[in-house]
């Protein structure tokens, strides 16, 4: 009898589980290339970009969701909601935006929005089913922000794929990224040029399985 009840509820819950959309989050430092990766995925599978990316840090200042992105690889299909998040930082100085010829008033507003974006990104961590942690492979990967993001995901048992981005640049050092987080799979890409995206999608299938 008990096993029948268990079976009944198990069946009901599995229906809900199947209906629930998978949330794939994209996290990392400002300017790591999160929106570029989100756009690359969207362009490859939906034929259009869905968010703005630029060289100015904190371009993404609120969480943006692209629903029902379906990708295919080796005869398999995967559908998820893609969640592009603002870059996580421990400091924000409006004067940094002035270097990009943004006027002071706009720079102050942008800084204010960026602080809210960081808080929002951290709050969304709880809602993710799996996460791409994007690391600029030309930079030192041992930053506290990377460690904090990955540590938080580990504490919540959320699967992680490290994306070592910007491999088209001369200073890129993928081995350094791999050795910083040896317990996680790493895939090296250039999101802007679309290099190694096939391997990226194969890794994505393994992550979301």
């Amino acid at each position: 009898m008990i096993s029948r009840i268990k079976g009944f509820f198990g069946g009901v819950f599995s229906v809900f589980k199947k209906r629930r959309s998978i949330k794939l989050g994209i996290y990392g430092h400002p300017n790591a290339g999160k929106s570029t990766i989100a756009n690359r995925i969207s362009k490859d599978w939906l034929g259009e970009e869905f968010t703005k990316s630029s060289a100015v840090p904190h371009e993404t200042r609120e969480v943006i969701v692209k629903e029902k992105v379906t990708i295919k690889s080796k005869g398999k299909e995967l559908t998820f909601n893609l969640v592009d998040t603002p870059g996580i930082a421990t400091k924000i100085d409006y004067e940094d935006f002035l270097k990009f010829k943004i006027n002071p008033k706009e720079a102050k507003e942008r800084a204010k929005e960026a602080t809210k974006g960081v808080i929002e990104a951290i709050k969304w961590l709880d809602d993710m089913d799996c996460v791409l942690v994007v690391i600029d492979s030309t930079q030192n990967p041992y930053s506290q922000v990377n460690i904090t993001i990955i540590g938080n995901l580990a504490a919540r048992d959320i699967p992680v794929l490290i994306v070592a981005n910007k491999i088209d640049l001369r200073k890129s050092d993928v081995k350094r990224v791999e050795s910083a987080f040896p317990q996680y799979p790493t895939v090296a890409v250039s999101a802007i040029k679309g290099d190694n995206m096939e391997s990226f999608y194969e890794h994505l299938f393994k992550l979301v399985k």
């Binding site: 400091k91 808080i119 922000v145 460690i147 904090t148 540590g151």
Partner: peptide, 17 residues
């Protein structure tokens, strides 16, 4: 700090910038 404390520290820092 543990990682949850670290992320909370970042959040609170952002609130007082």
């Amino acid at each position: 700090l543990d990682h949850i404390e670290e992320s909370e520290l970042i959040k609170r820092t952002m609130q007082i910038i």
